[in-house]
Amino acid sequence: MTITVLPIIEPDIKPGDPLVKEMNDQLVLMARALQDQHLKELELMEPLFEDIVIYISYYNKQGVRWKIVNDVPESAIAEVAEQCDKLGYVRWKTATLNAFNRD
């Protein structure tokens, strides 16, 4: 299974603020760590040819939320949920896949 974790930068955050730049850089690092370290075992999950795409973003400017944006087996969803729970990330609660505004 191919794992892709994409950091989603909120459009309503002011890009000129140095804190925002630091937060965005940190989000990129968290996405990379989730993909390359915490979810590494998913690469061996059957079927090997499938992809899993996960979005992560900030909510309330402090916490991190996550969402799987494609159809994957329930076992993959459970593994992502377990790893994200360990990291303190919360499930992204929106009805649509392309809704990037706050819950």
Rank of each mutant, 00 (worst) to 15 (best):
T2C: 00
T4E: 14
L6H: 04
L6G: 00
L6D: 02
I8S: 03
E10L: 10
D12W: 13
I13R: 12
I13W: 14
G16S: 15
D17T: 07
D17E: 10
D17M: 06
L19G: 07
L19K: 15
V20E: 09
V20M: 09
M23W: 02
N24A: 09
N24K: 03
N24G: 09
D25P: 02
D25K: 15
D25I: 10
Q26W: 06
Q26E: 15
Q26R: 13
R32I: 08
R32C: 11
A33T: 02
A33Q: 14
L34E: 03
L34Y: 03
D36G: 00
D36F: 01
Q37G: 00
Q37D: 12
L39W: 01
L39C: 02
K40D: 11
K40N: 09
K40M: 07
K40A: 08
K40R: 15
E41A: 14
L42P: 10
L42S: 12
L44C: 02
L44E: 12
L44T: 06
M45L: 06
E46D: 13
E46I: 01
P47R: 02
L48E: 01
L48H: 06
L48T: 06
F49G: 10
E50V: 04
D51Y: 07
I52M: 05
V53R: 08
V53W: 07
I54M: 09
I56K: 01
S57Y: 00
Y58K: 10
N60E: 15
N60W: 08
Q62G: 07
Q62C: 06
G63V: 04
G63L: 11
G63R: 12
G63W: 07
V64A: 05
W66D: 08
K67I: 03
I68F: 04
D71L: 11
D71K: 14
P73L: 11
S75A: 13
I77N: 13
A78K: 11
E79V: 04
V80E: 03
V80M: 03
V80H: 00
A81E: 10
A81P: 00
C84T: 15
D85T: 14
L87I: 06
G88D: 05
V90D: 10
W92R: 11
K93S: 13
K93I: 12
A95H: 05
A95P: 00
N98D: 08
A99T: 12
F100I: 15
D103C: 06
